[in-house]
Amino acid sequence: MAFAAMIDNSGDAGPVLPTTDNMLIGALRPEVRRLLARSATRIELQPGDILTRSGEPIDRLVFPEGAPAMLSLSTGGSSQDVGMIGRDGVVGWSRLFSDQPTPFTARAHIQPGTAIAIPATAIVAAADQDPALLKAILTFAQRFSMQMARTLASALRDVPERRIARLLLMIDDRITGDAMSVTHASIAATLNLRRATVTDCLHILEGEHMVRCSRGRIVMRDRAALEARASLAYVPDDGLAG
């Protein structure tokens, strides 16, 4: 869906990007939003939709609104999830550094939703004109790098139950409501755990009334208790930064 039917054309200043749940775009100055509105589109996403593919050029930057994106890295013929981007960030930020192909495959994850897609050339041109846009994207890139570092540290240090608690908290940070459309198999794949291990850990968390599990669905019941179980594996910077 193009923004042509959605943008605010009032006044003589030109179209402005509409209200969005994406915090990065929402924080931009009106002049920058007006500049980006000329080439922006709002796209519908379903879980599994590919936003970027490893080894391919980055021709657009995608700003998630309701559907979180999971980034994975291919090594040795296999793929491993390495980080999650929600409505606080953007997929394809490395295009501002160079025109090299992206190392990540990014796919919509957990639930359907929308995102704002803007051609990479438009973002690069706007960043050249407004250092604040470049700074905002670089700040997000730094936060995401820290998320990946913590993911690696957690994989090396933490027991599976704590890692699962961390993942559920990160998902909860990036969706609306308390219900997550995730399966034991998808959690196992994301964390590189055995499915049976995930099932055992979720039984424990459910028995302690932190979550409620059903087929393909996990509902958050006691977030504070889950944060306590995750302990230092989860920190606020892994969620939505203001």
Rank of each mutant, 00 (worst) to 15 (best):
A196C: 05
A196H: 13
A196Q: 15
A196V: 14
A196K: 14
A196W: 10
T197M: 05
V198R: 02
V198H: 03
V198I: 11
V198F: 08
T199C: 07
D200E: 14
D200F: 11
D200K: 15
C201Y: 05
C201L: 09
C201H: 11
C201P: 07
C201V: 09
L202P: 09
L202T: 06
L202Y: 07
L202A: 03
H203R: 15
H203I: 10
H203C: 10
I204E: 02
I204Q: 04
I204A: 07
L205F: 01
L205N: 01
L205M: 15
L205T: 01
L205W: 01
E206V: 03
E206K: 04
E206G: 00
G207Y: 05
G207H: 02
G207M: 07
E208T: 07
E208P: 00
H209T: 13
M210R: 05
R212T: 12
R212C: 03
R212K: 14
R212Q: 13
C213D: 01
C213R: 13
C213K: 13
S214T: 15
S214I: 07
S214W: 01
G216W: 07
G216A: 11
G216Y: 05
G216M: 10
R217G: 00
R217M: 14
R217N: 12
I218Y: 00
I218N: 03
I218T: 14
I218M: 05
I218F: 03
V219Q: 08
V219P: 00
V219L: 10
M220C: 09
M220W: 00
R221M: 13
R221F: 00
D222H: 09
D222Q: 03
D222N: 14
R223K: 11
R223P: 03
R223E: 03
R223G: 02
A224F: 07
A224K: 08
A225S: 11
A225R: 09
L226H: 02
L226R: 01
E227C: 08
E227Y: 02
E227K: 11
E227W: 02
A228W: 02
A228E: 11
A228Q: 13
A228C: 00
A228D: 12
A228Y: 02
A228F: 06
R229G: 00
R229P: 00
R229I: 12
R229Y: 02
A230V: 10
A230F: 06
A230C: 06
S231M: 04
S231G: 12
S231R: 12
L232H: 10
L232D: 12
A233S: 15
A233L: 08
A233N: 11
A233H: 05
A233T: 15
Y234N: 09
Y234Q: 03
Y234G: 02
V235S: 14
V235E: 13
P236T: 09
P236L: 09
D237F: 13
D237N: 07
D238L: 15
D238I: 12
D238K: 10
D238E: 14
G239C: 12
G239S: 11
G239L: 09
L240V: 15
L240I: 15
L240G: 13
